[in-house]
């Protein structure tokens, strides 16, 4: 862990799931691609162990929010590609809204505190 202004946050299970769903909203990807995308997007603020990511993928597959398929990767190796199912898409929409409401509520509280100081 490098010295940063904000210490990296550990992610909770539900959080990983929504990030995975979001990562797949642009189309099928394999686990490695999802890992890279999340790393890029969060700029290292959120550390996501790949083990946790794969657990989430297999969990979501079992819950049939994701479909999986083996096919050749960009450099022609066999890779497991995941994609959203219809219920996965619905779940993402729903979770997204919930998260937004949750975050708004948290920010409202934090901003009120700041004004009080």
């Amino acid at each position: 862990m490098e010295g940063k202004i904000v210490a990296p946050l550990d992610l909770m299970q539900g959080t990983v799931d929504i990030l995975v769903l979001k990562a797949l909203s642009w189309g099928p990807r394999h686990g490695y691609a999802i890992s890279g995308w999340i790393r890029e997007r969060t700029g290292g603020v959120l550390t996501l162990q790949d083990a946790v990511l794969y657990k989430s993928l297999h969990r979501l597959e079992e819950r049939r929010l994701l479909d999986a398929e083996w096919r050749p990767s960009e450099n022609n190796r066999r890779a497991k590609y995941y994609q959203l199912t219809t219920s996965g898409r619905t779940a993402l929409k729903h979770e997204h809204a919930t998260w937004r409401a949750y975050a708004t509520a948290v920010f409202d509280v934090l901003d009120a505190n700041t004004a009080g100081i």
Binding site: Q49, D50, A51, V52, K55, H58, E62
Partner: peptide, 23 residues
Amino acid sequence: SEFGDLSGARAYCRTRDRSAERR
């Protein structure tokens, strides 16, 4: 090291897959 707990993930994923297969 980025991957983390490899054997834990392996066991977990296998369980999930088996249950998915059963269903």
